[in-house]
Design a protein around this nucleic acid. Structure first.
Length: 419
DNA sequence: TCTGGGGTCCTAGGACCC
DNA sequence: TCTGGGGTCCTAGGACCC
């Protein structure tokens, strides 16, 4: 007898103001105040002799940092993530400013994920503060409770929230729907400490009135273009002809927009993935010039390469494509990369390759940011486990050449490349 | 004195091979 | 001599996300 596959029940869990909430566990005296996390590192709270603490205020800050998270009290003053700290200081000069402490957040991240996994093990990681969870096959998830056909799923989501709260002291918001796209939207509808369960029937009333920008995948550029076309809400998109969206946005993105607006998304919850790249970058306190600040830049460049090498080694990866990223004073970004004959995690090899990349950039403008990236990653263990067999060595025809050459573009005058 | 740092995925052209 | 495809790799840029 053919059986109907169970309907998918996908949850999206988002920790509420995660970094800020972790800080409030440590500094409970700040509860109820506008608190902002971000900036550099030079504003640690100071403990006074009487045991009380003194905190930095936004107004005290000078620098290029941005806000990473803020408490709901700070958000009420117009202070949001990714806003420059200097700009936020104009809006809320008296808000408390705390430095970011990623170690701490990562520790709490592991704890909340473990708490979820006790009840629902099929988890997709989406960074420190959010996850997708596949509830489809959990016992009881498909059961109705009283008149609520989704009561089983709702009860599981509530248990997950409770378990997270018990093990971390933190609240989260959960959306449960037939897919990741809708769940991501749903988890935001009742923040903080929310629980929202939606079916496709709820689309017109709960999703279509929302701004198009609320859809994960519609960013500032796409939203601006939509606005220019008189399209503001998700419902506006849903009313568009699919073919017209394809004309306006291209075959792939146009079709995706149409699907998204109609709540269609078949992507599975992916429980395991391998990293694609690792990188290190830094924004300077003031813009630097390649000639005038050569020594300073050179030292920073080497430092970034060393850090990348350490990251690779610590995590057990080798990288075969080394790249650089520059941001100029006008905010223009340039990248260059170079694929090596063999993967490496050696700081000097990375530094050399990055140096080759740098030669291919016009450095007349001042620099704001410098970054180094390792792509085409492979696990060290996997590379070790396949010693150079005769077959392998014979594989690339060019391996016969005496000295491996960098695969530089032809238009680049090779200049004084080591040779 | 606007605008961090760490990622993923997509597109597109040219090289190069079959 | 002309005219083709398909497929993969490399590189650069850009949109988007947390």
């Amino acid at each position: 007898m053919p059986s109907v596959p169970p309907r998918r029940l996908i949850a999206h869990l988002d920790m509420d103001a995660f970094y800020a909430s972790v800080e409030l566990l440590r500094y409970p005296d700040l509860r109820g105040l506008p608190v902002v996390i971000g900036g550099g590192r030079r504003h640690q709270p100071e403990t006074l002799p009487d045991g009380s603490r003194r905190y930095a205020r936004l107004a005290d800050y000078a620098g290029r940092g941005v806000i990473t998270t803020s408490t709901y009290e700070a958000r009420a003053l117009g202070v949001h993530s990714a806003m420059g700290v200097m700009k936020a200081a104009v809006l809320a000069p008296q808000a408390i400013l705390l430095p970011v402490d990623f170690e701490q957040y990562r520790a709490y991240s592991r704890r909340f994920k473990a708490a979820v996994a006790e009840l629902a093990p099929v988890i997709e990681d989406r960074g420190v503060d959010e996850i997708y969870i596949d509830l489809t096959h959990l016992p009881g998830a498909q059961d109705a409770v009283g008149h609520d056909p989704l009561g089983g799923a709702r009860a599981i989501a509530r248990e997950i929230k409770n378990n997270v709260q018990r093990s971390t002291g933190l609240t989260c918001s959960i959306g449960v729907t037939p897919n990741k796209l809708l769940s991501k939207i749903a988890s935001e509808l009742d923040k903080p400490d929310g629980l929202t369960v939606l079916t496709l029937d709820d689309l017109p009333t709960r999703v279509w009135p929302l701004a198009a920008r609320k859809v994960n995948g519609i960013g500032p550029k796409a939203a601006a273009k939509l606005t220019g076309l008189g399209i503001h809400t998700v419902g506006d998109i849903a009313r568009c002809e699919r073919a017209w969206l394809v004309e306006q946005f291209g075959r792939s993105y146009g079709a995706w927009l149409h699907d998204a607006a109609w709540g269609r998304d078949e992507r599975p919850v992916v429980t395991e993935s391998e990293p694609v790249s690792m990188s290190r970058e830094t924004t300077f306190e003031r813009d630097l010039h390649a000639v005038r600040d050569k020594a300073r830049l050179s030292a920073l460049f080497t430092e970034l390469c060393t850090e990348l090498a350490q990251d690779l080694s610590r995590k057990g990866y080798l990288s075969q494509t080394i790249g650089i990223k520059l941001r100029f004073d006008d905010f223009r970004i340039v990248t260059r990369d170079l694929t090596l004959p063999a993967p490496t995690s050696d700081a000097q090899a990375i530094r050399r390759a990055a140096g080759e990349c740098l030669k291919r950039v016009d450095l007349s403008r001042r620099l704001r940011l410098l970054g180094v990236r390792g792509g085409k990653l492979m696990r060290q263990a996997a590379v070790d486990a396949r010693p150079p067999s005769p077959a392998r060595r014979a594989l690339p025809p060019r391996a016969a050449e005496p000295e491996p050459t960098y695969n530089l573009p032809l238009f680049e005058p090779l200049a004084d490349a080591d040779s």
